[in-house]
């Protein structure tokens, strides 16, 4: 474990806590894409089911349990508890256009053609694009609550921090995971636009608003 990865994971943890805090305090899931959240549940379940048969560490185990359970809890909050505050008419990105190609990619690119490995690859590819419905929604509405932008910033920071982590591991441990690295680079690139507005507006105390 290096500091990049530790802070990356902590940032990921923070992003989920920020999202939960936003939903609980505003008693609303306005501005949050249900599709993105549902894709994250798919990602976590597909990747972390190994927690039942592969022991890595207590840290790894607890994080996996937290990510699976919190993402399912968020779906519950959106679909049941605060259902009236969720407006599906602006959450229009076609998630099936993401899932389909990721299945195909996972069947082609994997480290071993076994069910758990293909599932693992699928989760890596899907995670890299799971944020698209959320970013698309932001683009469509052209604005976001500040707390929602903090959520996205923490999530983007988590991805960005994994890149120096891989570089570090390549040199210190001699290991490289090309599938995770390529998917991770794509995923981080998707945040570039968002981060530009976040740094130039939100962190200067202005509202997150996209030019018309």
């Amino acid at each position: 474990m290096n500091l990049f990865r530790l802070f990356g994971d902590l940032s990921h943890l923070a992003s989920i806590l920020i999202l939960l805090h936003k939903i609980q305090t505003t008693r609303s899931c306005r501005g949050i894409s249900f599709k993105t959240q549902a894709l994250y549940v798919t990602v976590f379940v597909a990747r972390y089911l190994d927690l039942f048969y592969d022991w890595v560490s207590l840290y790894n185990f607890s994080m996996k349990v937290f990510f699976i359970s919190s993402s399912i809890y968020i779906l519950y909050l959106m679909k049941v508890r605060f259902r009236p505050t969720h407006d599906p008419s602006i959450d229009t990105f076609r998630a099936e256009y993401l899932v389909g190609p990721c299945v195909v990619l996972a069947l082609i690119f994997n480290y071993k053609f076994t069910f758990p490995e293909v599932l693992w690859s699928f989760s890596i590819f899907l995670e890299s694009v799971a944020i698209l419905p959320q970013l698309f929604m932001l683009q469509r509405t052209g604005e976001a609550e500040t707390i929602t932008t903090h959520y996205l910033a923490a999530l983007g920071a988590y991805r960005a921090l994994y890149i120096p982590n891989w570089i570090y591991r390549y040199f210190s441990e001699g290991v490289v995971d090309p599938i995770a690295v390529i998917a991770g680079l794509v995923q981080t690139a998707l945040y570039v636009d968002f981060f530009y507005v976040y740094f130039t507006k939100v962190l200067q105390g202005q509202k997150f608003e996209l030019p018309a």
Binding site: K64, R169, V175, D177
Partner: peptide
Amino acid sequence: RVRGPLKDEL
């Protein structure tokens, strides 16, 4: 260099 999945990552 070892290529493969880093299963200790989240």
